[in-house]
């Protein structure tokens, strides 16, 4: 295990330069520059805001940041999974030439997605700071200022680390699966579409507090604690509870263990299935 991680670290210049190249070729020749990363979540947020405003008379000042954080998170997860499906095919020519650890090929997509996620989160933090909640009310302290809200933001650091592990392991799992089964990507896209509606991306669980069965179902969704970890500090100026961290860490642990087990079985024979 340690030797494997060491081997990944040893070729860090390789996968880092691939990530850099991907980002550069994506931004090259586009006036939008970094806004590229934000284009999709912003456009989606706008659409959802308009729809929900007219259909459900949703107040925009609380709804827009909620949807935006949700979509930024979802963008990372779906990119990790969908691009993960193709990662070993994408790296096939390297796999055939160099004996590098297989786990670096999913890393390429995940780090790219993480970059976009990071930019999205920074914008979300800015929005949260400007249009954020009334901190005086939240802290029960009439003299609290907006800047106190910033104190809850460092809690996002462990969150990002957990997300990175989650994205990487999911990418490995779906990558290996699609080498074995050629229709994985197709089926995964459909499953993700369903999962999108079962995850509180464009709503909160509280929206359905009258429907107990649905609420219970939503609480079983392993992605829910991650959304809480992101939204609590940004939207509500609160540090997430330890229980939320523990739940997320447990999900990450399961995903990582599965990925390690799958790699252990498939690493040696992957090349024969490419």
């Amino acid at each position: 295990m340690q030797a494997y991680l060491g081997a990944i670290w040893k070729c860090r210049f390789f996968w880092l330069s691939l990530v850099k190249m991907d980002l550069r070729s994506r931004y090259r020749g586009s006036l939008l520059g970094l806004c590229w990363s934000l284009l999709h979540p912003i456009a989606m947020t706008t659409i959802l805001c308009v729809v929900f405003r007219f259909a459900f008379h949703q107040a925009l000042d609380t709804y827009a940041p909620l949807v935006f954080t949700g979509l930024t998170f979802w963008g990372f997860i779906s990119a990790s999974v969908i691009q993960g499906c193709g990662c070993f095919f994408q790296g096939e020519s390297y796999i055939r030439q160099f004996p590098a650890p297989m786990a670096i090929y999913p890393l390429r997509n995940v780090l790219g997605a993480a970059f976009h996620f990071g930019i999205g989160i920074m914008l979300a933090m800015a929005i949260g700071f400007v249009y954020g909640p009334d901190v005086r009310e939240i802290y029960g302290n009439p003299s609290a200022t907006r800047f106190q809200q910033l104190l809850s933001l460092p809690s996002l650091l462990p969150t990002c680390l957990l997300l990175l592990m989650l994205g990487w392991s999911l990418s490995i799992l779906f990558g290996l699966l699609s080498v074995r089964f050629r229709d994985t990507r197709h089926l995964t896209e459909i499953a993700l579409q369903g999962m999108f509606y079962l995850t509180p991306v464009m709503y909160t669980i509280d929206t359905f507090k009258n429907q107990q069965r649905l609420t219970r179902l939503l609480h079983c969704n392993p992605l829910v604690p991650f959304l809480d970890l992101i939204r609590e500090p940004i939207l509500f100026a609160r540090v997430p509870s330890l229980a939320t961290y523990a739940a997320s860490a447990a999900v990450v642990m399961v995903s990582v263990l599965l990925a390690v087990a799958a790699l252990r079985i498939e690493e040696r024979r992957l090349i024969f299935h490419l």
Partner: peptide, 12 residues
């Protein structure tokens, strides 16, 4: 190693 006539198997 094992090879298959078709390149991969479909999950379904």
């Amino acid at each position: 190693f094992h090879v298959r006539q078709e390149r991969g198997v479909r999950l379904k």
